[in-house]
Design a protein around this nucleic acid. Structure first.
Lengths: 316, 316
DNA sequence: TTGTACGCGTTATCAC
DNA sequence: GTGATAACGCGTACAA
């Protein structure tokens, strides 16, 4: 293993000069710096992050915390994870996956990424002694990144109108969480701007709940209705039950989902959906968290990432 | 932060005695050991894994390498990952996710878990300078854990026979890999034992490829045929196209999948499938890898994990 | 059996 | 601007 000392010898300087070239290059004269950089390149030197971690009292590890039940975890977490991993790798960070909220403080880490947080979890966060960022909107001042939920549903709603569906029904998730309020707001605002009356159902985030809903109320749904759904899970159930009821998708009824990761492609016909840039969000979360750690916990604010409307077979 | 020295002071011994209590308890007299353990508990001492890592020239990090294209990644990787993470957490290990084979040797790690390996990747493994284990059968002597593929398909085939399907067709994945050969062997052996003639199709592992297959050959498929599929992806496509062709599932045609993670539940009717214990396999892989690291790379052998047959609506 | 001295690779501090 | 020194927390080698 090539160490600082090796480079120092090679360049005929002290270890500290080498260290400075890496961490505070401006403190070193250009000539020496060039010399050292040449030596580093010649020896293919890479800093030992473990030694760095020891002296800086860091672990080079962050925790990826999933508060949602793993059984109900949507496949899109996979994308979040891999995006997050990509962000970490650039800084030689590693991660531990945590699914049990009680175990968050087990072991060591420099910070936390928290996903699937509900309002009821917020109190717990105040007890964390390390920096953390959230995946998901919140209005408690916690740093976060999320999809622009409101804009996403607005795009979906406007698209449904542009396809000349006359009745727009929103099927939301029956949770009292910011992301859901934002999605509903995107729907409500768009309808009001067009002098239409919002009509909202709220159900658990499961395809069978959506099937039940459609089954029960099918007679009330007029032709030319488009269902704007708060998740692909729901949209899949809606689409399936519509077919079962003998309704024609997309000609007589439209369905638009939300998420755009995997489930939308399993559906038949494939879903028109609002695709979240989950992978990118994961990567950004890593960058935000690492920066927050580097800045010893200073606030990073919030980022809303624009989703994309993907047009497919479930709308005409 | 509580250190070794703190505990030593508390127990009125030297640091080394404390260190020994942790690493070589048998070298310490029971009285002293008890004293030290009390002190550790009182101070809630936990070893600093970074310092350990530095002195042992370890990183406490392993890499989770996915050689398959992440876009085609099946959701069951999520389970593998979380199982793996669980195994790592017990030993305070963290992981880095790697999807680009070229980047495997970037940075530092004590070992590698490699998934999605094809035979063409094997040569690369010989160049790895750290211990590694594979998820997936191989016959090159690399340590691995996998589902007992042959037994899984045997179970599926025998079950189909017990449900009185008269014609059993295997739809495999068109790759020349050990796992596929094992699955086909499970089918072939079972049929031969029952004096039946095997009939095998091989297609890409996509639901639409399965749909195409069924569509093209539908007229050739007699009533009372059960399709034993090498993956849930294929099974989903088979089931869907059978319905499209107007065939009755499960009364006239049966479908059995393989994997049992997520996709089987999205299907309609839900798939009868061979469920792999992916989460457990992930955990075992972590244990195997960490043990191999602790034993400085000594061979760990191979483990075949029994799958479970899950009976549901796609068979009668 | 227990303790002392030193080293792992790095960075901060304080001289020069 | 540069270098010597100490320190991070722990484990090994050796001495007692």
């Amino acid at each position: 293993m090539v160490t600082l000392s090796d480079v120092a010898k090679e360049a005929n300087v002290s270890k500290m000069t080498v260290s400075r070239v890496i961490n505070h290059p401006e403190q070193v004269t250009p000539e020496l710096r060039a010399l050292v950089e040449k030596a580093m390149a010649a020896l293919n030197y890479h800093p030992n992050s473990i030694a760095q971690a020891l002296v800086n009292n860091r672990t080079n590890v962050v925790k990826f915390v999933t508060l949602e039940d793993i059984d109900t975890t949507e496949p899109y977490y996979m994308n979040l994870l891999f995006g997050f991993a990509r962000g970490l790798n650039k800084k030689q960070y590693a991660m531990q996956l945590v699914t049990d909220a009680k175990k968050i403080k087990n072991g060591r880490a420099d910070g936390y990424l928290i996903t699937g947080a509900r309002s009821s979890d917020y109190d717990m966060f105040d007890q964390l002694d390390k920096p953390f960022v959230l995946f998901g909107e919140n209005h408690r001042g916690f740093d976060f990144i999320d999809t622009d939920n409101q804009k996403g549903v607005r795009m979906a709603t406007e698209y449904a109108m542009s396809r000349l569906y006359k009745h727009l029904i929103f099927i939301g998730i029956d949770v009292k969480e910011p992301f859901e309020y934002s999605r509903e707001a995107g729907y409500i605002n768009t309808l009001q701007q067009n002098q239409m009356i919002p009509q909202i159902y709220r159900i658990p985030n499961h395809s069978h709940a959506a099937q039940d809903l459609i089954h029960e109320h099918f007679k009330e749904f007029k032709m030319d209705t488009c269902f704007i759904c708060a998740s692909d899970r729901i949209a899949v159930g809606v689409e399936r039950q519509l077919e079962t009821e003998g309704a024609k998708v997309p000609d007589d009824y439209g369905v638009i989902g939300f998420d755009g990761v995997f489930l939308d492609q399993v559906a038949n016909p494939k879903l028109t959906t609002v695709r979240q840039a989950i992978f990118d969000i994961g990567e950004s979360l890593a960058e935000m968290l690492l920066q927050k750690i580097a800045q010893s916990g200073s606030p990073q604010g919030e980022i809303l990432v624009e989703p994309t409307l993907v047009r497919r077979g479930s709308t005409r």
